[in-house]
Write a protein that binds this DNA or RNA. Sequence first.
RNA 1: GGAGAGGUGGCGGAGUGGCUGAACGCGCACGCUUGGAAAGCGUGUUUAUGGAAACAUAACGGGGGUUCGAAUCCCCCUCUCUCCGCCA
Length: 423
Amino acid sequence: MLEIQRIRTDKEGIIEGLKKRHFDAAPIVENILELDQEWRTKKTELESIAAEMNQISKQIGLLFREGKQEEANAAKAKTGELKSAEAALKVTVDGIDTKIQDLMYQLPNVPNDLVKAGKSEEDNEIVETHGAPPAFNFVAKPHWELTTQYNLIDFELGVKITGAGFPVYRGKGAKLQRALINFFLAEADDAGYEEVIPPHMVNEASAIATGQLPDKEGQMYHDSRDDLYLIPTAEVPITNMYRNVILPDENFSVKLTGYTPCFRREAGSYGSDVRGLNRLHQFDKVEIVRLEHPDNTEQALNEMVDHVKNLLEKLGLQYRILRLCGGDCGFTSAMTYDFEVYSAAQDKWLEVSSVSRFDTFQANRLKLRFKNADKKTQLCHTLNGSALALPRIMAALLENFQTEDGIEIPEVLHAYTGFEKIS
RNA sequence: GGAGAGGUGGCGGAGUGGCUGAACGCGCACGCUUGGAAAGCGUGUUUAUGGAAACAUAACGGGGGUUCGAAUCCCCCUCUCUCCGCCA
């Protein structure tokens, strides 16, 4: 959520910035400012009535103590009118407040200066490409054939147990999955991230704070009996560790990592994109989350990008980095870098990581603040990224490292898998 | 799931209708004191909103109600603790 102060002081900047998302913010912003003006007027009015009521109440108390019953009762009589005026005003003020809130929820984050305008993924900028695409002197198989051939993942069995999009990993498939998770966590640990194992279900307040609610309700699995949501990403519980927190000074840099399964309903996605591991209802991911002083955000983002690059290079995967255009950035993001690995067998780029800065957008909803040098509370910046999401990495490893008689496991994983080849 | 007891400031802990945004203690910050330190003394020490500021308003788990006035009374919800039950 954008800060109301920012809307008051930088209306044009916000409208201009959001044009890069092809989002016409002008009507909403104007509406907010109008309501805000009205709200402030009414609120001031309300408060002066409250002040008057407080005064009278105090006097009544004094009068009673002095035994001046009649005067006290006279004063009481005066309050009736004020009281109803106060009640009416309160309804008005609360009503305006709700309207503003609803409008505020509709405004996405303002893209960073580096972000280019654009509508869809067509407009994303490729900022870096590393490595050469794998070349095969035989017909490379897509991963869904390899997982069956080597008995690594059983999609049908998952359908039987649960439904489509809930695969069963088995044998070396399960071991490879676990090896990747351990490798990613070890790398994050080396980079100074504290490992956490958060709850896999969150309450409504948490889902609102990181922006999954109220809008994207349909994307999460919901347990209505206890009113809990299965997490769509570890970002939700981990970031919410710091909901309603004021860090005591400005010398902080919180770096957290966590492995969790992620659950996404992904209602309405069909077709070839969902084949095999490409899109699942349950998948594993190691996430990195950072809370930073606004002055450090740029550097933190660069460090996170470097971290993900490092992971892909150690795995020996060819990849490219995209800076998403305004239209393709997530609602809460100020800037996002996507990492894609090329799959020769599928002849397409697979998104394996997404690293974003949110600036104060999340912190504002979270009420995550710190005490700055002037002892004032100020909103923190938050960032997060996948490091990495498992399914497409698994797909890319299987597809790109296949040989005619098996799949070569990257050396860096040998210590974690306990085997060097799947055959 | 059943029964009971509770949720007050960074912490401990008072407070059953008004002078309580909150005693007292601890902690913390600054100052005095000191050769230096400790002790002692003094001052300060929540957050949000509006305001240039003075200041005003709101908040004692959350929501609603009673009242001129609620941390204090009533209702609902929620969380924690203890005992019982169940259980990896």
